[in-house]
Structure formats: C-alpha cells, structure tokens
C-alpha cells in the first residue's frame, strides 16, 4: 500500500480511492480540518467488525483493532471523495460523535451503535434505531450468530 500524509494522518489508496487512516484521538480534530478542506458532506458512516479477519492490509504505522469506523466524505467543490478509517478497540468500543460537525451522522451513528455496540460520546440520542429497543446483542458483530429456522423433514426419524 503506497502511503502519503494528510493532516498528520496516513493517506492510502484503495482501488484508486483515497483512504485516510485517522487515529481515534484525533478523529474529530481531523474532521474539523477536512471541513475546511471543503469536505462539507458526510455521505456515510459505518463500521466493520474485523474479529474473524485480523490480517487485513493496513499501512505499517496503523495497528489493527477489532472495529473500524468508516466515514465517507464528499467534497462538492472539488468533486472528490475521501474515506476515513479509524481503529476502535474492543476494550474501549467508543469514539467521539461527529454530530456537531455533521448533523446528518445522527442516524448513522445510531445505526452503528445498534449494530456494533460502539458508543459515540456526545451523541444527543444514542438509542437503537433498527432493532427493537429491548433487543439483546448487536447483530452485525461477527460473534453474533446469523440465526436460522430449524427445518423439520416430514417422516424423518427424529
């Protein structure tokens, strides 16, 4: 992976798309700088649970953690996209909320909380959004079984 540097963060390329690896403690500060670089729209915020795939390709300076927050920013002025990947550890599955910078991330962060159990500090209303409110567990985690309906075959012995 060829790398570069932007705002003191490692800038990589993935299939021709720019990916910025932001440390968790500089996540909000970097977003703030990127807004000034005309990345005014946050189109998507999601997460990936790398529990069963720890050996993914990362730049050397980045230590892999279990979770990764993936933020897709769009600059309408330059017509470019930038993807942020932030490592979030299992022990401290939380990150600062981007709500104050991009109000549109409100629902997306709730979805990530709902599906991965990653909490967003400073989010105004961190509740489940897709699953029932009293649900147990976070479905998109890799240690959450997909679930299946047992099939009963007619005439089988058991």
């Amino acid at each position: 992976m060829t790398t570069d540097v932007l705002h003191d963060c490692v800038l990589g390329q993935s299939h021709g798309q720019s990916v910025l690896f932001v440390p968790k403690d500089r996540y909000i500060a970097t977003l703030r700088k990127l807004i000034d670089d005309s990345y005014t729209m946050c189109v998507d915020l999601t997460a990936v649970d790398f529990l069963t795939h720890p050996g993914r390709t990362l730049p050397e300076a980045i230590a892999p953690e279990r979770f990764e927050i993936v933020v897709n920013l769009l600059s309408m002025r330059d017509r470019t996209r930038l993807r942020l990947r932030t490592q979030v550890s299992e022990a401290d599955a939380s990150i600062d909320s981007a709500f104050d910078l991009y109000p549109g991330t409100e629902a997306m962060e709730r979805e990530v909380f709902d599906m991965f159990g990653i909490t967003f500090n400073g989010h105004p209303d961190l509740t489940r959004i897709l699953m029932p409110e009293d649900w147990d567990g976070h479905p998109l985690r890799k240690d959450y079984s997909q679930g299946r309906i047992p099939v009963q075959f007619k005439g089988s012995a058991s």
Partner: peptide, 16 residues
C-alpha cells in the same frame, strides 16, 4: 463458542 456470546445492550423499551 464465539457464536453464543451475546453482548448485553443496556437498552430498554420505549427508548427510541
């Protein structure tokens, strides 16, 4: 054994 782990959510009904 991983598949059986359930992470408690700490959410409640009427929350949303």
């Amino acid at each position: 054994d991983l598949l059986n782990t359930v992470v408690s959510a700490g959410t409640f009904e009427g929350n949303q």
